[in-house]
Design a protein around this nucleic acid. Structure first.
Lengths: 184, 184
DNA sequence: TAGGCCATGTAACCGGTTACATGATTAG
DNA sequence: CTAATCATGTAACCGGTTACATGGCCTA
């Protein structure tokens, strides 16, 4: 999923500016499963315009900089539908926390506990922001996606809270055996 | 989390070759929360060697190409611990499926149903491979991580199976209203 | 008056992927 | 006989980020 398609997706549900797309995509409700920054969104929008997939009109504002409102064209809609027709790329998940958890035996207990605390806080924040953001998007599918997110994050959070003891128990147990391993 | 640190993490739990690291990291048990390819792992290993964080020795094999077995040094272990001490980067999750789900109203019902089928299959595969791979890693934390993965993926899978009807119901409902939106 | 928000845009940089080169062995 | 597995490595390329430039308005 490249930034162009992402822009089309957002614009497909209503007109928007580059600034707003970035906000939605990297702070708002979309931010939980996609991401993009100014440096890729503005060029993408420009290129989409060149290809006739979007149009734009400049809007004056009082006391604020002009904004360039983009709308998707029929061609753009077709392009977007096309992109969705081909099998979606698999989900992509990266987690430093899980890497640390995997290596727990080699890390001091305090450090592991700290990492767990931070992860819990992070997951709780994430869930809270889903609740807050879902109202800002006028798409029917948003509620379904929000529920899905709450479910997954919630079950992960519950697992960590209930089983953190097990991880903390094994923390540091590999430190003594390290010399043996190194000598091999 | 860059590839170098990732290599240190793997090597911290035992000696390994570039080939094996890639397998573990992009097909094996690590692959569910990190990723890297040959083109980044081999240069990373080389650079780690230059910095004295790992050592390597070449091993002859009969009927197979030589393998270069890397071991982490004490310096490397310290470096790795250091990397883990600073707060972990937040989890990073990307999902084309959720983007599609979010836009469900603008997509034909069949297409949505198809995407859901594929997502279910993907999640089931993912869970099955966790079960298969966890035995291949000799780290105590692996079981905890595997359980975490099963929990999260399982709850997501369950949600999709139970609520797919709701999503399919709203699929395509936005297609008629599109003209109105475009005219605005 | 300092910092944050609104708002658009560019250029340098970088981490990583893709594809290629090489080649023996083994399984189907 | 073909394809896959083992195994290491390089080079071109690319998508995207980071940081910068610009500047008015509003809030603390």
């Amino acid at each position: 999923m490249n930034v162009k398609t992402l822009c089309l997706a957002v614009l497909n549900s209503g007109n928007s500016t580059g600034y707003e797309i970035r906000k939605l995509v990297s702070e708002g409700h979309f931010s939980h499963f996609v991401d993009a920054s100014f440096g890729s969104i503005y060029p993408a929008l420009k290129s989409l315009g060149d290809d006739g997939l979007v149009t734009s009109r400049e809007e004056q504002q009082i006391g604020k900089p002009n904004r360039k409102v983009y709308s998707i064209t029929e061609l753009g809609q077709r392009e977007f539908l096309d992109a969705l027709t081909k099998p979606a790329q698999k989900d992509n998940f990266k987690s430093e926390f899980l890497l640390l958890a995997m290596c727990a035996e080699l890390i001091e207990r305090d450090l592991v506990a700290q990492a767990i605390d931070r992860q819990i806080e992070y997951l709780e924040d994430e869930i809270a922001s889903i609740d807050a953001e879902v109202r800002e998007v006028n798409m029917v599918g948003a509620d379904w996606v929000a529920d899905y997110g709450r479910t997954c994050l919630g079950s992960g959070l519950k697992y960590i809270k209930e089983n953190r003891g097990d991880l903390e128990k094994i923390a540091g147990t590999g430190l003594a055996g390290r010399q043996v391993l190194a000598a091999e």
